[in-house]
Design a binder for these strands. Structure first.
Length: 219
DNA sequence: CCATTAAGATACT
DNA sequence: AGTATCTTAATGG
């Protein structure tokens, strides 16, 4: 009955592995706003997202919180993986951006499958590479302190996961995801709008073609 | 209607 | 870039 839910993984893994996933994995539905992983909690299973989108946050000691990345269909959380393997507490928090479903893989299987299945090895490896590159990109944006680019990156990312050029989000939400304030985000968005790169609505931002081209910062 | 909330504007730090 | 404050516009009872 649940095998239909695995459709997003069909092209990733060989049949015997898919069978094992059905057998040992646990399907979990989640809804918008659900807390999937919290800071400091032990992770006993690695989640693979089947449907929906999940936001992964990182918090520093002072309590400031920023969004690290999104997870969509067939994505998994590399953080969760490393926590499972070493029985460590979670360094991140995951919140559902929209309703969806995930498959929780028990940690005992993670290791076993690495030896047994080539497709599992390359999946884990690729997902680490992908996440690593994404984090590098984030570090660049933060280290070189360009908030314009961070907002831009945020919107493009979000639009990609929502598969729409219309992003449904409030300025306040963007601000807290990026660890800044609402007024600052509004200012930046207004600059983009003045350059005809997007159109602002209430709770909604429509991204126009020029926005996606990699031209320089506004400031 | 009114209450709530998002977003625009301005001025100051 | 961030804070404080005020105004205006949408939204949902």
């Amino acid at each position: 009955m649940q095998s239909a839910s695995l459709s997003s993984l069909k092209n990733l893994f060989e049949e015997p592995l898919l069978q094992e996933m059905l057998q040992h994995g646990e399907f979990k539905d989640f809804h918008e706003g659900d807390l999937i992983i919290d800071y400091g909690k032990y992770i006993r299973a690695m989640p693979i997202i089947l449907r929906g989108t999940v936001k992964v946050y990182r918090m520093e000691k002072s309590g400031k919180e920023i969004l690290l990345y999104y997870l969509s269909a067939a994505d998994s959380c590399s953080m969760a993986y490393s926590c499972c393997m070493h029985s460590r507490k979670s360094e991140v928090k995951a919140i559902a951006e929209e309703d969806g479903q995930l498959l929780a893989i028990p940690h005992q299987k993670l290791d076993e499958w690495l030896c047994k299945y080539a497709s599992w090895r390359s999946y884990i490896f690729d997902s680490f590479i992908h996440r690593f590159n994404e984090l590098l990109h984030s570090i660049d944006l933060i280290a070189f302190g360009n908030l314009d680019q961070r907002v831009k990156n945020y919107l493009i990312d979000k639009s990609r996961h929502a598969q729409s050029s219309v992003v449904k989000v409030s300025h306040q939400q963007i601000a807290s995801d990026l660890g800044t304030t609402r007024v600052v985000v509004s200012r930046i968005l207004k600059q983009f709008e003045n350059l005809n790169q997007l159109i602002l609505y209430r709770n909604e931002i429509k991204l126009l073609r020029p926005f996606f081209s990699d031209d320089a910062a506004v400031t």
